[in-house]
């Protein structure tokens, strides 16, 4: 399975977590992100891919790069058609979890990245978009 830019990479089974993570690392390194940033991006991705696997069962990840004048942004989108998040503010609180995890995924990912956006509709699914900028 390869990951192409701007195309959905399916998260269907547990093994896809490591695979998707590895691909995110390769892309980030290729685009010249430094070790610190790469580790942050891959760790945030790992949390969000696991959220898909744990809460929705299946979903997709998409990688894109945005050029914005003097900087390049790596944008990762995680979408699922799972149960959705009833209270996003609550889900963003550190330590809050409806699963068995430590509840660090969303709040932690936000701190690791420059931007994190959540859209969620109960019964329809959730989309999380994270961005990390790199100066050219």
């Amino acid at each position: 399975m390869t990951l192409r830019l701007n195309e959905d990479f399916p998260i269907n089974e547990e093994g896809d977590i490591v695979l998707a993570r590895r691909l995110v690392r390769e892309f980030a390194l290729q685009r010249g992100f430094g070790t610190m940033d790469v580790t942050r991006i891959v760790t945030a991705a790992s949390e969000l891919i696991r959220n898909i696997y744990v809460y929705a069962g299946t979903g997709v990840m998409r990688v894109a790069f945005n050029e914005d004048g003097a900087r390049t942004g790596m944008e990762l989108t995680f979408s699922d058609q799972g149960p959705g998040i009833p209270d996003i503010a609550k889900a963003m609180e550190p330590g809050y979890s409806t699963g068995k995890s430590m509840g660090m995924g969303l709040s932690g990912s936000k701190r690791l990245m420059d931007d994190l956006t959540i859209r969620s509709v109960v019964g329809k699914g959730t989309t999380v978009i994270i961005i990390k900028w790199r100066s050219k």
């Binding site: 070790t35 580790t39 942050r40 932690g108």
Partner: peptide
């Protein structure tokens, strides 16, 4: 590793 330590702290571990 230093990058892992920074990330773990930001993550809230």
């Amino acid at each position: 590793r230093p990058d892992v330590a920074i990330t773990a702290t930001l993550l809230g571990l």
